[in-house]
Write a protein that binds this DNA or RNA. Structure first.
Lengths: 353, 353
DNA sequence: TTGTATGCGTTATCAA
DNA sequence: TTGATAACGCATACAA
């Protein structure tokens, strides 16, 4: 029908109908600006010509709005979509974009140098960056774009809002909970502290130097609480794993629980790792919480294992980020601290059981 | 610094440096096309002026490429992101877009008439529609755009590829599995047959009329297998629930298991529902599989409950969809049938236990 | 109610 | 190596 030839545009239709381009534009975008009859005629011809409708990109250019929010993940999307916390965030942002009738553009951020292109080419009205390490090259590009931008969890970008919980206080509460139960021999399992993670014991310096602010702070919260209880942090074994998986948690826990004296409480930075600790306890015939207390973080999958954990309002965080970006109002320039909650379940109990 | 005044564009920089717009464009997009010195000068001035970089939308318009794939969900995103099968699909598509260095634009499709606008405004190079009911208004809009498009699972769009498993055969295999174990008193739990779902018994006519092709076919597959074994389908109780949740499955199962004679095998259309059936069995003190066999569909969460189910290669399906759209080659115009697998676990056993 | 003219910001072509 | 010009396809102020 219309396969060959030039592309069908407003002009094509205008020529055919014998009206101006503007009139055809009105027929599609401002129906009330022209007579019903002419409009019908125009739409009919457009149909015959196989017109695809006003071009989305051209329209965006003219209207100066993209109709989408960009979301930057540092992880591969495959991983991100497998992580309950990320999913919760996504659900929250989704709710916000749904309400506003715009789309959500997910931007993968992987290897070396594609970053710049990815960020530069994104047709969006604003960016949300999620869990990026300090100094990640994509950050620079995002800021350069000059669009509204918010960060979730990390990193803090001077002059831009950062949405998340008070990691320091939350981790502190979690640690003080087990300390309050009388535990003195702690073990810690961490991940995601470095972009290029490792498996093995992490000394204090390594704990303090990682580029992921939130993770760093979380660990610092554990440490501060422990030291507040008179525990020498240098003596607390901290095991680092590469992947945030249940299996990694299990393996790490085996390392931790093989030590003498054996820790009586294990703190982790995610629920998945904590579930793995439960697995290890089962492997070793240790009772939870009589022989071992376990604490997670995020309350994403925690209920399954009866885990004590910190509940983060992930959907709320995502929704807030989305709304902020879509509000059209000037963005706050500081942290937006969201509430968290220490949820005590059956995985923690008094020491010396 | 540069807050007021006109927007900074290539021209602004060109004027300031005293070169042409094209040269400035080269400085950003084709570094090898101009002298290192001039380029440095241009970038320096751009920095001073706070230039945001080549505008993504203008660039898209000019280059005729959006750098993104659109994904249309019928459900609210909040639901979609909570569904393991959808997530798997998303992961697959994500892998494809990652490889190609483009983004994934998630398009919410909700209430009444926003559909057209959402689809029309999407700045994308192609569309993937997922699980849309026959005749959904968004479909028309997608086709009108004239971009590459593929459907996943449903619906079939004449002239476009449809990616999914052979639902009829898969459901048939699942049903024949329990029939082969000697079961004759079947019960079925379905959902997602209609956009406006209901809770209650669904007669044959209702089963056949729903607008969701894949679901319809899945049930038809059960039916064909049952009839092939000499069972009168009109006598098989089919219970429909609104939401695909474990709790709904449990409630439906209670309805089903209260019947006399009690079904000895329950077929469902999702794993979540099937897990709910296990819950109901536990409520009633029924042993699985001795007293009751249960079959799921999708193998998303099935392993948790030791469910017998159909495994769908969801990541593979998503990846295939993405790659097809990004290949630049003409799309196949028919079904792309992906392999499935009947996974037999502990939830099914011989009848008459 | 309809048409004219212009600009949105970029890149490709071609000539210098 | 750089510049002038012409698209890309649309929407809007303004004039008719």
């Amino acid at each position: 029908m219309s396969g060959r030839g030039k592309r069908v545009t407003l002009q094509t239709i205008a020529d055919r109908v014998g009206v101006s381009r503007a009139t055809v534009s009105y027929a599609f975008s401002r129906p009330d600006q022209l007579s019903e009859k002419l409009r019908a005629e125009i739409l009919k011809v457009a149909g015959e010509l196989g017109y695809a409708g006003p071009d989305a990109t051209a329209r965006s250019l003219r209207l100066r709005r993209a109709g989408a929010l960009g979301l930057l993940f540092t992880e591969t999307l495959n991983y991100a979509f497998g992580d309950p916390y990320s999913i919760g965030l996504l659900q929250g942002m989704a709710a916000a974009v749904e309400d506003a009738g715009v789309g959500l553009l997910i931007l993968p951020l992987l290897t070396g140098d594609g970053h710049a292109e990815t960020v530069r080419g994104a047709v969006v009205d604003g960016f949300c960056v999620y869990s990026l390490p300090d100094g990640h090259p994509a950050l620079e590009e995002v800021l350069r774009r000059g669009l509204p931008a918010v960060a979730v969890d990390e990193p803090y970008l001077p002059g831009y809002p950062l949405i998340g919980i008070d990691e320091m206080a939350a981790a502190g509460d979690a640690a003080r909970h087990v300390l309050g139960l009388g535990h003195r021999r702690l073990g810690v399992i961490i991940t995601g502290l470095y972009h290029q993670a490792r498996t093995g014991w992490a000394d204090v310096e390594r704990q303090e130097r990682g580029p992921f602010q939130a993770r760093r702070t979380r660990i610092a919260g554990y440490r501060a609480a422990a030291e507040g209880a008179g525990i020498d942090w240098a003596g607390v074994p901290v095991y680092e794993v590469v992947r945030n998986t249940r299996e990694s948690g299990r393996e790490a826990a085996h390392e931790l629980l093989r030590r003498e004296p054996r820790p009586t409480a294990v703190l982790t930075v995610t629920d998945r790792l904590a579930l793995g600790v439960l697995d290890a306890a089962a492997d070793l015939g240790l009772r939870v919480p009589e022989d071992l207390s376990v604490v997670g973080f995020s309350d994403s999958e925690a209920a399954q294992g009866g885990l004590t954990t910190i509940r983060q309002p992930k959907e709320e965080i995502g929704k807030t980020a989305g709304r902020l970006l879509l509000s059209g109002r000037p963005l706050p320039e500081e942290r937006l601290v969201m509430p968290y909650e220490l949820v005590v379940r059956a995985s923690t109990g008094p020491a010396g059981g």
